[in-house]
Each structure stands twice: as C-alpha cells, then as structure tokens.
C-alpha cells in the first residue's frame, strides 16, 4: 500500500484518492472550436515518467496537484491548488 500526502490531511493510503486527470488541462471558453473542446474533454498527455496530475482526496473532497513518476510511482510533491482552481 502506497501513501499519498494530501496537502490538507497528510499521508493517507492510496485507496483514499481518486485520479482526476492531467494538470494544466484548462477549460476553454464558450467560443471554443470543436477541436479544442474535444482536446480538452478527451485527449491526454499520458506521460511516461514525471507527470503533473490532479487528484482528489475522497475523504476530505479536496482536489490538489500531485507530481509523480508514472514508472517508479515516486511522489515528488503534492500541492494545494491556488486561486480559482
């Protein structure tokens, strides 16, 4: 069992967390073209190695940013999301 560190609750078992998708996948405006809307909804970086992802801690319902290696599973940082996110 791997521990992920929620920025609000501290280290918790991985089963308490839910993967939310790529970080920096910003929602385009209402006038977005079909192509950019499709890209936002469905297309992913899916990086091998270092990745920036949004996760949710299901226990406290807070979304946060996790920097993690998708091969070794080493977590290098977990950060609260700033501002409007």
């Amino acid at each position: 069992m791997q521990l992920f560190t929620c920025p609000f609750c501290g280290p918790r078992p991985e089963t308490e967390f839910h993967f939310g998708g790529d970080a920096d996948n910003d929602r385009p405006g209402a006038e977005a073209s079909d192509a950019s809307w499709t890209d936002y909804l469905f297309f992913r970086h899916n990086r091998k190695g270092p990745a920036r992802e949004i996760w949710m801690h299901l226990s406290c319902r807070e979304a946060f940013l996790m920097e993690r290696d998708t091969v070794t599973h080493t977590v290098t940082a977990t950060l609260a999301l700033g501002g409007e996110a």
Binding site: M1, G49, V71, H73
Partner: peptide
C-alpha cells in the same frame, strides 16, 4: 489499478 502507471506491476490494494 486505480493509479495511472507505466510500471508493469500491480499494486497491492
């Protein structure tokens, strides 16, 4: 497994 991965190994949960 509920964690996206290229690790080719399963996790325990």
């Amino acid at each position: 497994d509920r964690v996206p991965s290229y690790g080719q190994r399963g996790n325990l949960p």
